[in-house]
């Protein structure tokens, strides 16, 4: 049996693609590099949109990346069920692409925040969180200046009512996100976006605050193997 293939997208200005690829490999899958300028998903089984400052965050975070050739392939594929995880800038891109509702705006306190953050897992019914327990608290690094999740009242009510708030900040809200939201999913649960960084918390060697990030990768691998 061949290993599951998880695509890791690189845009100009992406920072976390190498960590993401390493996390994918540590979990036992093949990391497939995907290039923003290609109209080619290379037949991958899932896609990781990593963090960074794609296109220099020009205009708005993720606003230019969202129209890249790779994204014009990824958007219909995600709508058809391809599992996609976006972290940090990847989350911002998913919102700009309208694969996820709402938007990420400047942190309430204006400061760029870089620290270890407690996060509560609110939903294990997504492609990327099935290996966690509902209500489990995990610790992941956060590092962002535009992480304040906003959406209109009707959208927030729908997210809460449908159990699509996947992660909430615990022990204090770092950026002013509405309802302490750290991550959300689409209706089908195949597309998940969050501001924290699971790919930076997969091995003790790098001084990570935990190895809780592994759960994202073991979740998706179980899903792909059982698919």
């Amino acid at each position: 049996m061949s290993a599951a293939r998880v695509g890791v997208v690189t845009f100009p200005g992406t920072l976390d693609d190498q960590d993401a690829a390493r996390a994918v490999r540590l979990a036992g899958a093949e990391a497939v590099p995907l290039w923003h300028a290609d109209h080619d998903l290379k037949g991958v089984d899932a896609v990781f949109l990593p963090g960074g400052f794609s296109y220099g965050d020009y205009l708005r975070c993720g606003a230019i990346s969202r129209f890249s050739p790779l994204m014009t392939e990824l958007i219909p594929a995600a709508q058809a069920g391809l599992p996609v995880l976006g972290t940090c800038n990847g989350f911002q891109i998913l919102c700009e692409a309208h694969l996820l509702p709402g938007a990420l705006t400047r942190n309430e306190g204006l400061h760029y925040i870089c620290r270890d953050q407690r996060i509560r897992v609110e939903s294990t019914r997504t492609a990327w969180t099935s290996d966690f327990a509902d209500g489990q608290e995990i610790v992941l690094p956060i590092k962002h200046g535009e992480g304040r999740y906003v959406a209109d009242a009707a959208t927030l009510a729908a997210l809460e009512g449908e159990g699509r708030v996947v992660f909430r900040y615990a022990g204090g809200n770092p950026n002013g996100s509405l309802n302490d939201i750290a991550g959300i999913a689409n209706e089908a649960g195949n597309v998940v976006g969050l501001m924290p960084h699971p790919e930076h918390a997969v091995e003790d060697l790098t001084g990570a605050p935990s190895v809780d990030g592994r759960g994202f990768f073991t979740s998706i691998l179980k899903r792909l193997v059982n698919a």
Binding site: T105, R106, N107, E108, G109, L110, R148, V150, G176
Partner: peptide, 13 residues
Amino acid sequence: MLKPEILDPQGQA
């Protein structure tokens, strides 16, 4: 412009 109901921390600063 940001919609009126969206917090504008830069404007506040």
